[in-house]
């Protein structure tokens, strides 16, 4: 039977494009998210375009109590899983920094929920001794900035979590890849001022799915963000704190 991948947060533009990239490579796909009407549309589209088997179901990142049962259900339905793409995320807005309840939701979705499901997935793949976990983090997690540090903190935590997971699972034959997209043309960024070199979801998705055929642990997309962030993280804090970023 062909390989299978679980996509969490499957209704986002990057996730949708990634599902197509995996399906085009022959993967069977399980799309998970909260919006069942959207999932039904996405699943039908994937099946028709790629002729592959697609299933979908409800997954809520914040309902961590149900994560174990959810994963068990998916692995059973798909007859085992070969990989997972964690694509959910929530930008929130600047209010999140001032209003803790809004900030807590950003942290709960981007980090706590991710840590919960990734923990279960790690156990699953570890016990099988193979598989892959791809987590979509963000360049915003590489350095705290006044404009989105709650989101940045949550994504930064996710990056560290994935790094730790990679360290733990490497000897077990499980691949863990951290993806750090820069600006991608999605609903999250549409109409946002001051963006440059915006990548299409298709571009990002092709490289995410393609990363499995190559080496590499941390994938900046597009590639030049590695160097942009290299510069940004090396700006001395005494200078950085004075910048309006």
């Amino acid at each position: 039977m062909s390989q299978s991948v679980l996509i969490l947060g499957a209704t986002s533009a990057i996730a949708r494009a990634s599902a197509h990239a995996f399906a085009a490579r022959g993967y069977r796909v399980y799309c998970a998210g909260r919006d069942m009407e959207e999932l039904r549309r996405i699943a039908a589209d994937l099946e028709i375009r790629h002729g592959t088997e697609v299933k979908y179901g409800r997954f809520d990142a914040e309902a961590t109590d149900g994560h174990r049962a959810f994963l068990d259900g998916v692995t059973e339905e798909m007859g085992g899983l070969d990989g997972l793409l964690l694509a959910f995320g929530h930008l929130g807005d600047q209010v999140a920094a001032r209003d803790f309840s809004a900030g807590a939701a950003v942290i709960a979705r981007n980090f706590t929920g991710a840590a919960s499901i990734l923990g279960h997935a790690a156990d699953y793949f570890e016990s099988r001794g193979r598989g892959f976990i791809i987590g979509i983090s963000s360049v915003a997690g590489d350095r705290g900035r006044q404009s989105n540090y709650v989101y940045g903190a949550a994504k930064g935590a996710l990056s560290l979590y994935l790094q730790g997971l990679r360290n733990r699972l490497f000897p077990k034959g499980v691949r863990v890849i951290t993806v750090k997209p820069g600006f991608v043309d999605t609903a999250m960024t549409f109409g946002m001022p001051g963006l440059f070199l915006v990548a299409s979801p298709h571009y990002v998705a092709e490289r995410i799915a393609g990363a499995l055929d190559k080496g590499g642990d941390v994938l900046y997309l597009p590639w030049f963000w590695r160097y942009i962030m290299l510069i940004i993280v090396h700006i001395p804090e005494t200078v950085f704190k004075r910048l309006k970023l």
Binding site: T11, S12, A13, D35, E37, E38, R41, T186, A187, F190
Partner: peptide
């Protein structure tokens, strides 16, 4: 311009 992602 608006560019909805979701049908609804």
């Amino acid at each position: 311009l608006e560019r909805p992602d979701r049908y609804r």
